[in-house]
Design a protein around this nucleic acid. Sequence first.
DNA 1: TCCGATTAAATTATGCGCTATTGAAAATGA
DNA 2: TCATTTTCAATAGCGCATAATTTAATCGGA
Lengths: 159, 159
Amino acid sequence: MTDENDTRKDDLKDGEALALGQQLCFAVYSVAHAFNRTYKPLLDRFGLTYPQYLVLLALWQHDNMTVKGIGEELGLDSGTLSPLLKRLETAGFVSRTRDKGDERQVIVALTEKGVALKTEAFGILMEIGKATGCSMKEAAALRSALHDLNRHLDEHNGA
Amino acid sequence: MTDENDTRKDDLKDGEALALGQQLCFAVYSVAHAFNRTYKPLLDRFGLTYPQYLVLLALWQHDNMTVKGIGEELGLDSGTLSPLLKRLETAGFVSRTRDKGDERQVIVALTEKGVALKTEAFGILMEIGKATGCSMKEAAALRSALHDLNRHLDEHNGA
DNA sequence: TCCGATTAAATTATGCGCTATTGAAAATGA
DNA sequence: TCATTTTCAATAGCGCATAATTTAATCGGA
C-alpha cells in the first residue's frame, strides 16, 4: 500500500502519509472511546455523562459563562449544548438565565450543588490520571503533541 | 487545585494526576473531533461518515468479516454496527449474507463498488496525513504513545 | 433425543454531535 | 428613524455509541 514511486525528500511519501494518517486518526478514535469507557462508571455515580462533565470542568475553572463561551472552550455548538445544559439544569448542577444586558445570551452558572460536586468528584476522578499509566513527563509530552496536532488540523479546516 | 500535601516519590501527586488526566482526556477528545471535522468534507463526496469509512478500511485490509469481527477490530458492538452496515449495504458498498455453516453469523463483504472505492478514495484521503502537520517520526511516536495509553486504559477497564 | 447454556445479531432507548433552520434580539447604516 | 445585517440560542433530523433486552442458532451433556 506504500509502494508509490514518490521519492520526494523532506516530506512524506504519499503511501506513507495515507497509512500514517489512517493509523493516527484511528488511534485517536480508539483512545477517545477508551477514555469514555473509563470515565463512564465513575461519572455514573453522579448521573453525569462525559461531555456533561467536561462542561462542569469548564465552569469550575470559570463560572458564569455564556453558551457560546462554553462552546468555544469545548469546540461544541448550541445544537449540542442546549439540550445538554437543560439536562444539567434539570439535574440541579447549573442554572440558566438570560443576560439582562443582552437578552440573546444565556448565562450558565453553577448552583450550590454544582460547586459542591467539584470537591466530591475530586477524589473519585483522581484515579483516571493513574489509569493512563503514564508518568508526568510522558503525559505532558503526549498532551503537547496532541495540542500541536489539534492546532494543525484546525488550521487545515478553518483557516 | 494541585496543592495537596502529597510528597510521594516515583508517582504522581494526586492533584497533578487529576489535572493531567483531565488535560489529557480533553486533548484526546478535542483531537478526535478535529479529525472528524477534517475527514467529513472529504468523505461527504462519497456519502460516507467517518465510522463507515473505518469499517471499509477494515474490509479493505480483510474482506468477508463477521459483524463481531468488525466490532472487535473497531471496538464497536452490534448496536452501532447493525444500522451502520445496513446503510453501507443500501449505499451499495457491502453485502450482508448469513453464513451457511452458522446461520447466526452475518458475513459482511465488499461489493465491486466497495472494492473500487478503495482506489478512488486513496488519492483524496491522502491529504489527511499531511493535514496532521507531523513528520513521519513524530506521527509514529504519537501513534505509539496512543497505543500504549489505549492499552493501559483497556487494562484498567476490562482487565 | 431433549434441555439448558452459550453465542451472534438485531432491536430498543437514551444521549452526544453535526448541520441546517428558525426566531428573537442587538448592532449597523442610510 | 427604519430597514438590513449580524449574533445568539433553540429546535429538528440524521447518525454514532452504549447498555439492556430479544430472538434465533449452536453446542454440550444427561
